[in-house]
Design a protein around this nucleic acid. Structure first.
Length: 475
RNA sequence: GCCGAGGUGACAGAGAGGCUAUGUGGCGGACUGCAGAUCCGUUUUACGGGAGUUCAAAUCUCCCCCUCGGCACCA
């Protein structure tokens, strides 16, 4: 699908605080970086919100014909990881590996598949050291007791992303006092090794990288001095993204370091921020036990990415009902039928157009979904009386929608559902046997045998297995 | 204090000056062995308050009120 002339893609850019026409730096190629997780714990719904949002962005850009290189870092060395390792008596590496693996599992569960490359901080230590060295050479950074700090005052544009002046920032600061820093606002690029901490060799002695510089080191490795989209949640605007700009633009002199800065709104729980102290953190792996992961994904896409989401079970349940309405319509479209009405075909065309138009305006998934509901209405209204062609057309539109929103309607739990159906069927058969209703019991057994499922009654209850069918022998 | 995002019908949430957003729920009806799904109708002055600009404002301007977030290693 190719972008229509009259509807150009528009994107809200935090840097300019405006919705702008999206034009990549290099033709149809888009380089997009999103701040990944610090792997010291399981990922929660807030992570899911942000990563689903950017997954949709990448999917939609590709749908428009852009070639997207989607890069995400993994912060696998950090204070919190080290702390956790010390508490649990293992190494930082083990903690990082464990939660990196868990993160990938969670991403897979939510069908977040559009990232081309995950880059770990610890795989880019050389590049980080290079950047820190250049910053020292250019006079933006200084070494103190084996640590290296970025001298924020040296970078004149500091604060341009968050719309703050350095003076204002300092006025409200509650920064931890570190003796060796020249100024309280300076941030660590390299941290000297402390007892019991992991470390790497550097020109300033043993130590480990600071947070902000890992992202610039990674993006410059794969993208160079400038790239198209940098994403992350709102809370990263300051100081993290501000610091990234300071590092990158000081090193290369190329401005802007990133053309479009995109930030997702926060996800709160019952009106409160998720936090350890409130004990209201909802992990991805827990929520998907209660709700279909695709419904969770739908829930996250149901609010525009820049708006805050207030998660409550009530709103989640509302959205699940809406989700089921869509899925019911899709099921109807998958059924065979022969009618002669053609309304659905025309509606499908209109909805496809509207859907794309809404997505074009800063990825307005909420409005895009609203347009899908207009198709859903008509599917229920005309579906059964429609021509196979009209149904096929409507089905294609819905599948296009699933594809962009990232919902896979064929749920990966078919095996699980199958097991449950067998349980139900066999329990009905057991009840029949207790009633000595042998006719029903035998019918169930013989019908199942016809489709290759063999039921055996044992002293411990019924068992079943899938036997070799005649067909598979023939093959 | 500074910066930012918001305040829209019972609830959730889109609104790019003029065009019933949408979803969920409630109520009434159709269909139905029951339940569910679906359909039809209904919930017919929704835009935090006040000024202003305009033929026309939820949308633009100004003032005020309220909520939430960020303010130095949080997605």
């Amino acid at each position: 699908m190719v972008a229509q002339e009259e509807s150009k893609l528009r994107v809200y850019n935090t840097l300019t605080a405006r919705i702008e026409e999206f034009r990549p730096i290099k033709g149809r190629r888009v380089r997009m970086f999103v701040c990944g997780p610090t792997v010291y714990d399981y990922s929660h719904l807030g992570h899911a919100r942000t990563y689903v949002a950017f997954d949709i962005v990448a999917r939609f850009l590709r749908k428009l014909g852009y070639s997207v290189f989607y890069l995400m870092n993994i912060t696998d060395i950090d204070d919190k990881i080290i702390k956790k390792a010390q508490e649990s008596g293992t190494t930082a590496q083990e903690i990082a590996d464990k939660y990196t693996e868990a993160f990938f599992e969670d991403m897979k569960t939510l069908n977040i598949t559009s990232v081309n490359l995950y880059a770990k901080a610890t795989d880019h230590i050389d590049e980080i050291i290079d950047q820190v060295s250049v910053l020292i050479d250019k006079g933006y950074a200084y070494e103190a007791n084996g640590s290296v700090y970025y001298e924020v005052r040296k970078f004149k544009d500091f604060g341009k992303l968050s719309g703050q002046s350095l003076e204002n920032l300092i006025a409200g600061a509650r920064v931890e006092v570190v003796e060796e820093k020249k100024n309280p606002e300076d941030f660590a690029l390299w941290k000297a090794k402390k007892e019991g901490e992991p470390f790497w060799q550097s020109p300033w002695g043993l130590g480990r990288p600071g947070w902000h510089v890992e992202d610039t080191a990674i993006t410059m490795t794969y993208f160079g001095a400038q790239y198209d989209i940098h994403g992350g949640a709102r809370d990263l605007i300051f100081p993290h993204h501000e610091a990234e700009i300071a590092i990158a633009e000081a090193i290369t002199g190329v401005k802007p370091f990133v053309k479009y800065w995109m930030h997702t709104g926060f996800l709160n729980i019952e009106g409160e921020k998720m936090s350890k102290s409130l004990g209201n953190i909802i992990r991805i792996r827990d929520i998907v036990k209660k709700y279909d992961p695709m419904a969770v994904r739908f829930y996250l896409a149901y609010t525009h990415y820049r708006k805050p989401i207030d998660f409550t079970t009530e709103t989640m349940d509302d959205v699940v009902r809406a989700y089921n309405r869509i899925m019911g319509a899709y099921r109807l479209l998958c059924e065979q039928s022969e009618g002669n009405k053609n309304e659905l075909a025309e509606r499908a065309d209109n909805v496809m157009h509207d859907f794309m138009k809404e997505m074009m305006y800063d990825f307005n998934t909420r409005n895009a979904i609203a347009s899908i509901f207009r198709l859903v209405d008509d599917v229920y209204k005309y579906g059964e009386d429609s021509t196979p062609q009209a149904k096929a057309k409507a089905r294609r539109v819905m599948e296009e929608f699933f594809d962009i929103i990232g919902i896979s309607p064929i749920i990966a739990t078919h095996a699980e559902i199958f097991e449950n159906i067998m349980d139900i069927l066999l329990s009905i058969r057991e009840e029949a046997r207790k009633r000595r209703d042998w006719e029903t019991a035998d019918k169930i057994r013989s019908e199942l045998k016809k489709i290759g499922i063999i039921v055996e009654d044992t002293a411990n209850g019924p068992r079943w297995k899938i036997g070799a069918s005649m067909r598979s022998i023939a093959n």
